[in-house]
């Protein structure tokens, strides 16, 4: 198409302004001297200093990171197994229910997931005496449950677009099916597993609704802390916290994106060269 789509480009500019102006405004006002979070009163970095002196925020951030690391890892293991089951085993008893269970948490309103998990933990405490108190363990279990389905979806999509001839070749060469899985399939889908882990990690780090239901006294994650602060009004230290989180996540995602893009490009090139060499 040789016409310049001026209308569409204008829409893109306005759209991205809509996306980024609130975030930029938050970043700018994190350097505000004034206590009023949205009225400019001169440049200052005092809120960042206050942030690092605030033990409550640091402890909440550490708890969130711990939960995110553990839950993302378990979610990746369970989610990869679920993705494999759905993509590689076309017939087994209860497959319809299983695939429903993998999609349901993705579309279930978070309030309902939160309430149902809380009720499970309360019932279990009544009947078997565990969990005695809610907190770290219950939050981690809840996060594993809903983020594993995201991992499963990513892994399943990758597996169904994968070239199975490599697996067949390994089978022909005498590998047992589970060896093929470990030596051939898993390495090929490893970028998808990695992005699944990253997604599970950020989902866990970000979750407020479900965590709010299954948490207990003393276990305040960062989103829960922000939630309780924001409900009381806008405060400048949250702007500073938001800026730090955006910078960390932004840089992390950008690096992960570049690394994965390069790895993909290299793999593609290797495959092309291998095919060319064998012709």
């Amino acid at each position: 198409m040789n016409r310049r789509p001026i209308f569409l480009i204008t829409c893109l500019c306005f759209g991205f302004a809509f996306f980024y102006i609130p975030i930029l405004s938050m970043i700018v006002f994190s350097f505000n001297r004034s206590r009023l979070a949205t009225v400019w009163g001169g440049f200052s970095t005092q809120w960042y200093g206050k942030l690092f002196e605030n033990d409550q925020i640091i402890n909440a951030a550490l708890l969130s990171l711990k939960i995110a690391l553990i839950s993302a890892t378990f979610a990746t293991i369970l989610g990869t197994l679920a993705g494999l089951a759905l993509a590689r085993f076309k017939k087994f008893r209860g497959r319809t229910l299983f695939s429903g269970l993998v999609t349901a948490p993705l579309i279930m309103p978070e309030v309902i997931t939160g309430i149902s998990m809380l009720l499970l933990f309360i019932m279990m405490a009544e009947w078997i005496g565990w969990p005695g108190s809610r907190g770290f363990t219950t939050i981690t279990i809840a996060h594993i449950t809903f983020s594993m389905t995201y991992v499963a979806t990513i892994v399943q999509a990758r597996l169904s677009s994968m070239d199975t001839s490599v697996e067949e070749a390994a089978m022909d060469l005498g590998s047992r099916p589970w060896q093929v899985l470990i030596d051939v399939t898993l390495p090929i889908i490893s970028p998808a597993i990695l992005s699944g882990w990253l997604l599970a990690f950020t989902i866990s780090l970000d979750d407020v609704v479900i965590t709010n239901f299954v948490t207990g006294p003393g276990s305040t994650t960062l989103p829960i802390l922000i939630w309780s602060k924001v409900r009381l009004g806008v405060t400048p230290d949250i702007n500073a916290l938001a800026t730090l989180m955006i910078v960390v996540v932004g840089v992390g995602v950008a690096i992960a994106g570049v690394v994965m893009h390069r790895a993909d490009a290299r793999r593609e090139r290797d495959i092309q060269m291998a095919i060319a060499a064998n012709k």
Binding site: P22, S25, M26, V39, I238, V249
Partner: peptide
């Protein structure tokens, strides 16, 4: 990218913008 940054903080950004004293 905004999807990867905290959902809660994106809502919070709008609380700041919509307040009656804000530049917006």
């Amino acid at each position: 990218l905004p999807f990867w940054t905290s959902f809660l903080l994106r809502v919070y950004a709008w609380i700041g913008l919509m307040g009656s004293n804000s530049w917006f």
